[in-house]
Structure formats: C-alpha cells, structure tokens
C-alpha cells in the first residue's frame, strides 16, 4: 500500500480535509483579530475563536503530515451534475417562492432536482410535481397558514 505516485497524494482525502481545516482555522483567526482579545480572566469576543481557530489549523496540519507520510484513501470522482441540479433547484426555490408562489416553485424544485436521477421520466415527474405542489399548498398554506402566496405577484396574482 506504500505508493508514492504523485496522483495518490494529490487526491488524498486526508490532504484535502487538512487543507479545509487549515483554511477555516486561519480564516477564523484572521477575522478574530478584529475583535478584542481580553485575557483569560476577562475574555474578549476574540479569545475563544482565536483559540479554536489555532486548534483547527493544527489539526489540519497533522492531517496533511499524515497524508504525506502514509497513503490513505483517495477521493473518488465527484457527481458534479447531480450535485449542481439538487443545489440549484433548492436555491431557485428560495429565490422564486415569494415571487412565483409556493405551488409553481415547488413544481420547479421537483422537476429540476428530478433531472439528477437516472430514472427521470417527464410525465411521471410532472405528476409528482403537481401532486407535491397541491399537497404543500394544502399543508403549509391552508393548514399551517404560512404567509406565502400559493401563486405569487410575478404571475399576476
């Protein structure tokens, strides 16, 4: 298992986890510089975040050393298309729900995220979209009376 191939290190899970931890740790410490530190007996708002950021960066460093010393697991390919569809569909819901209204936004969410599945069939998913829209309008607007319109101002309501 002792492979020194460059691709192995570059794709190492430990390496990238370490880098992420270091990035967040340093970011926290940098931002915390703007807050008063105080001292242990009277901690300012910067004390605890600075300490945590330092610990996080150190953990990241150890992970990187581990990744360089021993070959660990390698990252497998990302499913970028599926990830993008699910994330964009959810984000779009947030952007459109007040303008388009709950029913069309729900339908959009179902249709766009549905494309992420290999089993996507247009008519079946349209049926699911209509069903879920009706259900969410009934549950969230009629029953729980959320202050969202079923059909919004963008559609002329």
């Amino acid at each position: 298992m002792n492979s020194k191939a460059p691709g192995r290190i570059a794709g190492s899970k430990d390496l990238w986890s370490g880098l992420i931890f270091i990035a967040f740790g340093l970011l926290a410490m940098a931002l915390a510089r703007g807050y008063a530190m105080g001292h242990a007996g009277r901690m300012g708002p910067g004390y605890f975040p600075t300490a945590l950021g330092g610990v996080l960066a150190c953990i990241g460093l150890v992970l990187i050393v581990q990744a360089v010393l021993s070959s660990g697991e390698v990252i497998t390919g990302f499913a970028w298309r599926k990830a993008a569809l699910v994330l964009v569909a959810s984000g779009l819901f947030g952007v459109t729900v007040e303008g388009l209204g709950l029913a069309p936004s729900t339908a959009l969410l179902v249709m766009i995220s549905g494309l992420a599945s290999e089993q996507f069939r247009l008519w079946r998913f349209l049926a699911l979209a209509v069903g879920l829209s009706a259900f969410s309008v009934l549950t969230f607007i009629t029953l729980l009376s959320l202050p969202i319109p079923a059909f919004g101002p963008w559609l002329g309501f």
Partner: peptide
C-alpha cells in the same frame, strides 16, 4: 428513491424558508 428525494427536498426547502420567511436561509 427517485420519487422520495424530490419530496424530501420540498420539505427541506419549505421548512427552512418558513423559519423566518427568508431566501437567505435557503441560500
């Protein structure tokens, strides 16, 4: 699962939005 996951997404999205009616929370 391909019918289940859009349903879960709908509940997640509406649930988060309804916390404070904010697009920011969804993003």
């Amino acid at each position: 699962y391909h019918y289940l996951f859009p349903t879960i997404l709908v509940f997640c999205a509406i649930g988060v939005f309804s916390l404070s009616n904010s697009t920011f929370d969804i993003v």
